[in-house]
Design a binder for these strands. Structure first.
Lengths: 193, 193, 193, 193
DNA sequence: TTGTAAACGAGACGGTACGTCCTGTCTTTTA
DNA sequence: TAAAAGACAGGACGTACCGTCTCGTTTACAA
């Protein structure tokens, strides 16, 4: 086993340049077309410097994306749960509709065949965001706005499942209006009263 | 442009052997690890024979999978829409929980960077199934069991989104029981009455 | 172990192009500066095609050189052994004084750290030539022109040792005249009678 | 140009440790397999410390070898030139037959593609030794034991050429007995009287 | 029954990207 | 304030697959 590199000696300039180049290239040329070598070159960095700190192109891009979006933020709480989750879910929908959504698709694709990356994706991205959503929904449950017999984690899946479904299967365009409508269906049910 | 091959001269033995080998290898070794060359070898076939009839490994595996599951079937109609879609969605959940689900993940992954494959995936797999589901849901709408102001295509997304969310993002295990519960939430809403 | 490639299916055009490019580049740029990739590119060939047929750059260059010089020829026999070996040894001296000598130095250098190459070098180049020389010297022994108690293989070493000494250690320039003088010293001895 | 380091500040402990490690590692693992980094590590020294004082691995090993064998000594002079050069040449033959010979081969190999190293090799090793041999042979010439019309430098080549020929081309094992026989052939000639 | 044309098994090919290794320089930290 | 430790830019290595391209060899229909 090669000795683990010492993070304290890490060159911050290179680090930044790599993340910037990764984002720049993947959004411009498409995730799949970008190679580790191209990122290294664009960042003015040796290929080994990338492999010293990340195990793969995907890991670099994931960090670049996480770095761009910042840590998971709290879901807004105005007291009106329907309005709050509509706004927040629409923001996600909008983001996934840009170039970043395309990069994101590449990342999720790579994760299908790379368990370590999948784990990293969940831990660094999905779980923190799911947790923030659950906090907001728990508040709503306590406020008597949501059923008490539905796990909030399941509600999160009901909200985001259809968004990722469209993103990854491409059956329909990602559309904030549709996202808003879905919140209504979700809260009130699609069954006839 | 090379002359299009004549499908009538296609060797049926090879065709079958290729589909069988593709399924066998991808379920055994994992989608990503399998190469076109390995499929050709396992099928006792030249690599060119595969490329003559399919554009990529993914296309072969997609046909193998479609061949295995048969054409989209009608969703059962006992008159009780809740029971019917529960049963049918659970069947899907179960299937995606087996080895085939893993193969399926590989296929969807490849489709992220291959628009032709994505199109093929939608046309040959998703759209026919969505159509059958919509037919069943339309019946339920006419029977006054579902709201009339919700597009049935959206209901399908609400049903399957969370299933593919779990399959592709791996946040939780695929679970038929959870699928059943979700039908309830979907029909009755998660909001407090 | 990967299956050994079938030599009968070898592409003659590529084969030739590789040997030509190897010689061209090594004489032009210097043996050490040439990479396998550069040879491949100059030959219009994939790198793998080189590695399919040769284990290393050195092996390619060795074949190119052997191909250029042809199989070991018989040493001339006019009856005058002194004259014959002078002429032949001068020819070798001259050849090693050209660009090819420089390439040859690179080859011998690589052989110091690569036993397989060293073996190849001996078997395909040195031993056949040593054998031809021994044949000529044997004739001279039988003709009463050389001592019978000196192994002819040793005489070959005495002739060529100094040539390679100069080539590889660079103490003096390779010089056909000096080579001629050495034949005299060798036959008549440097000791005072 | 970076300021030349001041040799007086050179740390003697490190210097020794580097030479010792270089010899230890090259004899144990083979010249080619040893890297500058490995020498630095084994010597408990930073890589830069090596590059500050030597231009390459070869230069370090050359100094280590020169340091081990000491400066070129006078060739023995008992009055019997045949006996003297036999003994001295056998000593060289024996040395080159040990592990050191293998290291030496690596050094000569590197010199083929590195003119500066080749120059260093000649100046620090070969020329001094050639000079000592010439002194002894000059004495023999004056004593009427050697022909006066043969440059002594050429006699040295005739003596050592075959030894390096075997060392570098590997056609036969290095053998002190053979070396002794060659002195006879050299002095008395291989031609029939 | 033979001729011919297409598909076939086999596998070499040109090419791209990979992840590793080493070089020689530069930077940080420690003593 | 020197030097160990080691990160860095650069670049070659040898491997793995890709999708294309020859090869002869069946196979199946036409003459």
């Amino acid at each position: 086993m090669p000795p683990a590199p010492n993070p304290e000696l890490r060159n911050q300039r290179s680090h930044r340049a790599i993340l910037d180049a990764a984002l720049e290239l993947t959004t411009r040329d498409g995730y799949t077309k970008v190679t580790v070598e191209a990122i290294a070159q664009a960042a003015g960095v040796g290929k080994q410097t990338i492999y010293r700190w990340w195990p793969s192109k995907a890991a670099v891009v994931l960090e670049a994306l996480n770095d761009l979006t910042g840590p998971a933020g709290r879901v807004p709480d105005t007291g009106d749960v329907a309005a709050d989750i509509t706004v927040a879910a629409q923001a996600v929908t909008h983001m996934l509709g840009t170039d970043l959504g395309t990069v994101w698709r590449g990342l999720v694709a790579d994760a299908q065949g790379d368990p370590r990356l999948a784990e990293d994706l969940r831990e660094s991205f999905f779980e923190p965001r799911i947790a923030r959503w659950q906090e907001r929904l728990d508040t709503a449950v306590r406020a008597g706005q949501l059923r008490t017999d539905v796990p909030t984690r399941t509600i999160v899946e009901l909200l985001f499942g259809p968004i990722y479904y469209r993103l990854l299967l491409g059956t329909d365009r990602l559309d904030p209006e549709n996202t808003a409508a879905r919140v209504d269906y979700l809260l009130n049910g699609v069954g006839q009263r």
